[in-house]
Design a protein around this nucleic acid. Structure first.
Length: 616
RNA sequence: GGUCCCGUAGCUCAACUGGAUAGAGCAUCUGCCUUCUAAGCAGAGGGUUGCAGGUUCGAGUCCUGCCGGGAUCGCCA
């Protein structure tokens, strides 16, 4: 990224080197005291700590070095001692101020225990914004292959709100990383090979109702929905029965083993169940606007399992234990108990750890990624710890490949317990989207905004608003922490919400359209004044928010930034004349600022998986 | 019981990994639609960051001990 803070960090870093200080300590960032400065660098204090010296003295040396490095930046050479004497009374700290329009810094100040505060000139700020391509986002080079795993819905089950977070966070990370130059493959990685299917297939066969499955037409939406409905009702019944009855449980386990051995008729029924489920899943993910590059499942790696386990046995990594085949992954250095990872259960069936390992085998073979990232519920952290240890132990991946479980917190209800509907069940994703869409439609009608829209546009706008509300409400939360699922919040359109961001983008669109209708070209230079500076400064922070999001697999940083930007624009919009501005060059400059803001908002929202309607 | 995570405004959440005066939204209150979309703007009130110590120029953030909540601990995923 060549964000403004990176450029400033490089410059101040040079000054550090010049002053004989380690430049790694330099990280210029947006000041958290905007009343004092635009940017700050805390490196002098860190350097002082290392060298056991006075941080203000260090900061002075850095400022002197800055002057030497950038003659012309300052009106005259920085005589630190004199300036301190001169300006001390004025500002309570010493600083250097220039009015040179070609300068980069307009003010450099040392404050408090040793903060180096930096202000840049409006001219440099304008120049930066005009010349930066992609808003300062520079794609990594060379590109790196990344596999992102963020699906995980089980086939034969309706998708519910529990699948929301993985989908939304993962899809956003896919978009963000892709934009930042990574070669990303998003994999839905469905649960299609587990015991729940043995249970379900056994139930169909016992009841003699397998034709319900086999006669379903994958092409026909109603037919698909009907089977999904049937399976959705059947599974809890079968699962409950198996818990009560040992024979049924055994039957389900045996069926699972037969299925995993691809025996008929089990495998044939399964194939149909999977095809139907995928059709249903694609529809739901489609409504959410969540996309995948790979529609793979656990079953797809089945053929990798036997050779993988064989290899592990030969090399002694896999051992027999209580009738099962396991990989011991505990280590002496552990201060916690890590159970061995089970490859084959006593009954011969595989577990999801087995398929997860085999999936890594396949991913290495087919894609050879440098990162594999799992966006999966935090509660599975032990599982991933086991899997990662097992594949490293067995040399399936080498040490420079990153394996990350980017876990997310549980979605709780208002009572602090995992979210349940009033009926005690889980809320379906389809129902959630429907509720939000209806609410958005009502809002359109209420504001009389849709009166001149046709039915299609009205539906499209309502859908975009609904998805924006749901996604933004989720994405703005820090990934790791549990959070409260609040239907009112998820379908709220005011305040810090997705629709608020859409609204700001739409207002700019509308304004720019008006400008174009009036014959404006929107290609003028930026000439920043008092009213424009805050917005312009905000616009430089986009790449930083992306970088933070990538580093932490945490899209909420981007959300935070976009919300600030939208607020900044809204404030600008309320306080400044744009189309009605009499000063022609100022008008042009402001239109330009609007254009950049709009582009960035729209791009940023797109990276969150949110689309902006033409109007709302 | 072992291990791990969490505790920030009435509520829901941030705080760029140790920085300055802890920020947003909702809710409450006060203004603003006769100029570009009021899904908006300007402003007010609201905090002992669970408690008690410690580390240092400096702690919501790090270390210790409590209190409270949650997750997880071999044949489910």
């Amino acid at each position: 990224m060549t964000s403004l803070t990176h450029i400033l960090s490089d410059i101040v870093g040079e000054a550090f080197t010049h002053a004989g200080l380690p430049k790694e300590l330099v990280q210029v960032r947006v000041s958290d005291r905007p009343d004092l400065a635009q940017f700050q660098c805390n490196g002098a204090m860190a350097a002082a700590k290392q060298a056991k010296k006075n941080p203000r003295e260090i900061a002075k040396k850095v400022c002197s070095a800055l002057t030497e490095l950038m003659p012309g930046t300052f009106i005259e050479d920085l005589d630190v001692d004199r300036i301190e004497y001169v300006l001390n009374e004025e500002k309570g700290s010493f600083s250097y101020i220039t009015s040179d329009p070609n300068a980069l810094f307009s003010e450099v100040t040392i404050a408090g225990p040793g903060f180096i505060n930096l202000n840049i000139t409006d001219a440099y700020l304008a120049d930066y914004l005009e010349k930066r391509e992609n808003y300062g986002v520079t794609p990594i080079s060379p590109s790196e292959k990344v596999v992102l795993d963020y699906g995980g819905p089980n086939i034969a089950k309706a998708m519910h709100v529990g699948h929301l977070r993985a989908a939304i966070i993962g899809d956003s990370l896919r978009r963000i990383m892709s934009y930042a130059g990574y070669d990303v493959l998003g994999d839905v990685h469905m649960g299609d090979w587990g015991t729940h299917l043995g249970m379900l297939i056994a139930d169909y066969l016992r009841e003699g109702e397998e034709s319900l499955v086999l006669d379903t037409d994958v092409e026909d939406e109603a037919s698909v929905a009907k089977l999904m409905e049937d399976m959705g009702a059947r599974y809890p019944k079968a699962s409950g029965a198996a818990k009560e009855n040992e024979d049924l449980k055994k039957e389900a386990q045996e069926t699972t083993v037969k299925l995993q051995n691809k025996e008929q008729p089990y495998y044939g029924i399964w194939e149909k169940i999977r095809a139907v489920s995928v059709a249903g899943m694609k529809k739901t993910y489609g409504k959410l606007g969540v996309e995948f590059d790979l529609w793979k499942g656990e079953a797809d790696v089945h053929d990798y399992i036997a050779p993988m386990v064989e290899d592990m046995r030969e090399k002694g990594w896999a051992v027999e234990s209580d009738g099962a085949w396991v990989v011991p992954v505990a280590s002496n250095e552990d201060n916690k108990k890590i159970p061995p990872m089970i490859l084959y259960k006593r009954d011969g069936a595989v577990m999801y750890g087995t398929t997860d390992c085999a999936t890594i085998v396949e991913r290495v073979k087919l894609y050879d990624p440098v990162k594999m990232v799992y966006v999966v519920d935090q509660r599975q952290s032990l599982h991933f710890e086991q899997v990662f240890r097992a594949v490293r132990k067995a040399d399936i991946v080498n040490d420079n490949v990153e394996l990350t479980h980017a876990g997310f917190g549980t979605m709780n209800g208002k009572d602090g317990k995992p979210f349940k509907t009033r009926e005690g069940g889980v809320m379906r994703l389809e129902d959630l989207i429907k509720m939000a869409t209806e609410k958005a439609e009502a809002r359109l009608d209420e504001a009389n905004l849709a009166s001149d829209m046709d039915e299609e546009e009205r539906g499209d706008v309502a859908h975009k608003v609904a998805i924006a509300a749901i996604k933004f409400a989720d994405l703005q939360n820090q990934r790791q922490a549990d959070y409260v699922f609040d239907l009112d919040r998820l379908t709220s359109f005011e305040g810090k919400t997705g629709p608020y961001l859409l609204y700001q983008a739409v207002r700019i669109k509308s304004l720019l359209n008006k400008a174009k209708d009036a014959g404006e070209k929107i290609d003028g230079d930026l000439a920043l004044g008092e009213g424009d500076r805050d917005l312009a400064l905000l616009l430089t922070q986009f790449p930083d928010s992306l970088q933070l999001s990538i580093n932490g697999y945490a899209p909420h940083h981007l959300c935070e930034y976009l919300h600030k930007l939208a607020q900044g624009f809204s404030s600008f919009y309320g306080n400044c004349h744009i189309l009605s501005e009499n000063d022609e060059s100022l008008k042009q400059s402001r239109l330009q600022l609007c254009q950049v803001t709009m582009n960035q908002l729209e791009k940023g929202l797109e990276l969150l998986g949110i689309l902006v309607p033409a109007r709302m």
